[in-house]
Amino acid sequence: MTVALSIKQLSKTYNNGFQALKGIDFEVKEGDFFALLGPNGAGKSTTIGIICSLVNKTGGQVEVFGYDIDSDFPMAKKQLGVVPQEFNFNNFEKPLDILIHQAGYYGIPRKLAEERSEFYLKKLGLWDKRDTPSRNLSGGMKRRLMIARALIHEPKLLILDEPTAGVDIEMRRSMWAFLQEINAQGTTIILTTHYLEEAESLCKNIAIINHGVIAENTSMRTLLQKLHQMVFVIDVKTSLEHAPVLSGFDCVLVDKQTIEVVVQQSQSLNELFALLSEQQIEVASLRNKTNRLEELFVDLVAKPSA
């Protein structure tokens, strides 16, 4: 299978001496919908900046569809469309001009540029605004304008740095649908987001980056499997000296009146209650310890970096 993006031992030290990336490796396959997650300052935008050559790397290698970004840069750049985290278009230009100019920078003839601009502006709901100076667009429209601009040369790999930041729920859903549509048509997509729900519903594979190192790189399914266990916090009426032994269940004593029990998806709560009853442990109340993707994310990110 073709590799859309290959990153090897990528490192970046900014001029002020700050090391934002400490030698990261990951790969994105063609056709993938890939999430790059991580807390603020983790190094996501730095990574994207290097891929699209807005940031000079300190070390390592990046290949886009097999084209090295240093030695084969015009080809690498043609494969790549990028939607940056911050607005970076000319506020005084109109959306239509912005798209036509961008097409020109890729050597696309004027007529084709006009057709595509119309297509993508319509697709992203901006056709009505084509002649409005772009500073007068709303935040969500500006983001869509940047998506249209990134697609104008029909890249095989589209990278979006927090495309849905500041976008309302309805618009976010329609953006998701749009991204899924172009992914289905063959465009490989990488996105960063702080909405885990977004990553969960869109992405097939995932890398979590923290303090400039990759903390996790796996499929979304594997990651979610880790969620197929729940932790229950049980308040008991009986005062306990040590954690009860419940065969098949991991159990820890939090305090004399509280235990935490891990329940796998294959197990049932009835079994647990039966075991507890056997040992004459009376349950007062039971609650689900928060254990959603967020929790997992926090865990991964809290792990001391290697």
Binding site: S53, L54, P84, N88, F89, Y105, Y106, R149
Partner: peptide, 17 residues
């Protein structure tokens, strides 16, 4: 102006030599 508003990046990401 292009540098200040960052739209110079439009050119920098493109394959234009």
């Amino acid at each position: 102006g292009a540098k200040f508003q960052r739209f110079v990046e439009e050119l920098l990401v493109s394959p234009t030599p």
